[in-house]
Nucleic acid binder design. Structure first.
Lengths: 153, 153
DNA sequence: CCAATAAATGAAACTCTTTTTCATTTACGT
DNA sequence: ACGTAAATGAAAAAGAGTTTCATTTATTGG
């Protein structure tokens, strides 16, 4: 994943290329997971001085430019992922928070067509979020069952 | 929609049948829309003295009993709807905010099976939210195009 | 390279939703 | 009706996100 394409996009839209913006982009690019503003703030703070407000503002800007996408976590908190154009299907691991963008769900257009036919709605946009356990967290769940049957926490 | 089936469910699970609980149930039953705790609080306050905390606690209890379901609004706020067992698909009108619960999406199990096969995830739960315009708001949008072409707001 | 300046930042204060604490009230079996 | 545990309401606190404003910084032109 190239940071240059995103920094160019900023410049072309008349925005300045600042240290916080570069840092947020870099962190998002390197992340395997959806990150909350607080997590990005923590990560960024380890390398240079930055305010949480700036993280929020930067994420809002990047979302507006279509570079990142907001996802809703269970408690209503927001997290952000790099936007994969056209893919609004997210698979989120309840164990470790890792996410996968799912491409090419062939059934989706049929499903939407059926809903439109049945309800008369005109569907403009959809969000599909699937929650479950990733392969590695499934393993850990099994191991925990065996080794810690006395632990009732 | 009968309130008795829900009050019975409370009693059968060892919970007391209090005025706030009855009121929240009644408000949920009568509502055409997803309601936020604040909205339920406001509605309830018009009829008797109740604390917002109690609304939160009652909704948490009703959700745990499977009587209501939490939906995430765009700004991260939570709203609640009466649970339609097994239906976690919501169709929301961008125009008027009305929602429809969609039953029997036959494609969904296939879709989930495909995702599991492709990713190795075990999907426990899903949320499908479709956004668009309901028939009546589509009409209004068309009328606005005709009658107000000079209005650039 | 340096100065001017408009954009961007950080700190603090604030708003709003949700949770916790705890003393008071209420539902319900006896 | 009484006693008791459950439930409630008020207040305070916790947490996410936003607003304000003085300071800093990226960029443009000399």
């Amino acid at each position: 994943m190239q940071i240059d394409q995103f920094t160019n996009q900023l410049r072309q839209n008349g925005y300045r290329l600042t240290k916080p913006r570069q840092a947020v982009l870099q962190i998002m690019i390197e992340s395997e997971r959806a990150l909350t503003p607080a997590e990005i703030y923590q990560e960024g703070s380890e390398h240079f001085r930055v305010g949480l407000v700036t993280i929020y503002r930067t994420l809002a800007l990047l979302e507006q430019l279509g570079i990142v996408r907001q996802v809703h976590l269970h408690d209503g908190e927001h997290a952000y992922v790099l936007a994969t154009p056209g893919h609004y299907h997210t698979l989120i691991c309840n164990g470790c928070g890792r996410f996968v963008e799912i491409a090419g769900l062939a059934e989706m257009p049929h499903l939407i067509a059926e809903v439109e036919a049945r309800t008369g709605f005109k569907v403009a946009e959809h969000r599909l979020e699937l929650y479950g356990l990733c392969p590695s967290c499934q393993q850990q769940a099994i191991q925990r069952q065996h080794g810690a049957s006395h632990d009732t926490t």
